Amino acid sequence: MWRSIASNALTLGIVAGIGLAGVLGWAHSQYRGPGPLAEAICLRVESGSNFSRVSDTLEAEGAISNGLIFRVGADYEDKTQALKAGSFLVPEGASMEEIVDIVTRGGQSTCGTEVVYRIGVVSNQIQLRELDPATNAYQMTTAFDPKAEEIPEAYSEARSDGDVRYRIAMAEGVTSWQVVDALNAVDFLEGEVAELPPEGMLAPDSYEVRPGTDRNVLIARMQEKQAEILAEAWANRATGLPIETPEEALILASIIEKETGVPEERGQVASVFTNRLRQGMRLQTDPTVIYGITNGQGTLGRGLRQSELRRATPYNTYVIEGLPPTPIANPGRASIEAAVNPEETDLLFFVADGTGGHAFARTLEEHNRNVAEWRKIEAERANQ
């Protein structure tokens, strides 16, 4: 009899063990397997929240199938105390394990509101953007001039939200004065820029910042990046160039940057200036003349006068030989690379063609025909 009881107890124990192992295996597959989320969501984790609240939110959003398994899994991985506040993009089909990693790994928010300050050649703009989880693309909701008298309420609300991301987006071709002036206009940066950075030595790019970032620290980042880009481009330069130093390459790149906004033209524009330098021809480029008038402090806002084209200044390339003494703007990587690796052509001239690009020419006769065509286009536009 006792043997029968013991045998039955052992059998029950084995069955229970097998059942427990099955449950654990099922829970494990639920935790690590693809989740039920049909479309990506932006998960907001409030400061002071816990995994219980997060699991409730995820269950309500249809992102997890079992809140208990989610919490037990986080506890088993010893991540319960590592929960971070913020807004996090949870992709379609994310497993519980992946979601736990997303909300505990740290770093800035990956979705929600983003404040982007765009520093442009003609104007500056602060944009508020919201990430659409379904497309993983930002949609602009508010835009305004940071120097405007009235600041949108949406921006004031965003500034009070510690979960918002901030970026400074610097366009190619802006001057150092424009960058400093723009940075001084925003309220989420601190510090006074004591000295204007050298022209050309700020890398156009998008820089993520935090509220309270020192302006001088940001400018130092821009300078460091531009120095790296210039050094790399110079090390990989073509042979036989009519420029002798990285500084001269930067000057030439800035002229290329200001002469064309068409990416495909940079190599050709670079070849024109390279050919002119080789032949001892004056560069005769309007952007350098304009810089000599404005000192890089904003745009001229009008056409050049004949008296300005004849006036002798260090930047008037209709008068001086070779390159001006400094860059005339902050060129991007593509223009720097074009300056040191221009296309191989026999082009010597170019003029606007009415489409946003340029008509290139090898001879003065051909160039004069292109100029006449451009004058015709200008006249037609003036009469419209």
Rank of each mutant, 00 (worst) to 15 (best):
M201R: 15
D181M: 01
V193I: 08
E195H: 11
V180E: 02
A182H: 10
A171P: 02
A171E: 01
W177K: 09
G191F: 09
L183T: 09
V193R: 10
Q178R: 09
I168Q: 07
R210K: 12
Y207C: 11
T175A: 07
L202M: 15
V186S: 04
R165I: 10
F188C: 06
T175K: 03
A185T: 11
L183Y: 09
D187T: 01
E208L: 09
E192M: 00
E208G: 13
A185F: 03
G200K: 08
D187Y: 10
V209W: 04
L196M: 14
D181F: 02
A185G: 09
T175F: 01
T175V: 03
E195D: 12
V209Y: 08
E192Q: 15
R165H: 01
M201Y: 13
A182G: 06
L196E: 04
A185R: 12
E190Q: 15
G200M: 10
R165V: 10
P197C: 01
I168P: 12
V174E: 08
A182L: 07
A203W: 05
E172F: 03
V209H: 12
L183N: 01
S176H: 09
V180F: 02
A182W: 00
E208K: 09
A169R: 12
W177D: 14
E195G: 03
P204I: 12
L189A: 01
M170V: 15
Q178K: 04
Y207P: 14
V174Y: 10
P198F: 05
M170C: 08
E195C: 06
V179Q: 02
V186I: 11
R167H: 13
A203I: 05
V186K: 11
A182P: 12
A203H: 13
L202S: 15
R210W: 01
L202F: 12
L202I: 15
I168K: 03
R165D: 06
G200E: 14
L202C: 15
G173A: 01
P204F: 09
M201H: 14
A171G: 00
G191W: 07
T175S: 15
M201I: 06
E208I: 06
L189N: 02
D205W: 10
G200Y: 04
L189K: 10
V186D: 11
L183F: 00
I168Y: 00
Q178F: 00
R210G: 06
L183H: 10
E172I: 01
T175W: 04
A185V: 07
A185H: 02
V174N: 10
A169Q: 14
V209D: 11
A171I: 00
F188R: 00
G191H: 05
W177I: 04
N184E: 04
A185S: 15
E208D: 13
E199V: 11
L183W: 10
F188H: 01
R165Q: 09
A203K: 07
A182C: 11
Y207E: 00
G191P: 09
A171M: 05
G173L: 05
V209R: 13
E195T: 12
D181N: 05
S206C: 09
M170W: 03
F188W: 14
L202K: 08
L189H: 00
V174H: 08
E190V: 10
S176G: 14
E199D: 05
V174F: 04
E190P: 07
L183R: 12
P204Q: 02
V179D: 02
L183I: 06
G173C: 12
V174M: 08
Y207L: 02
R167D: 01
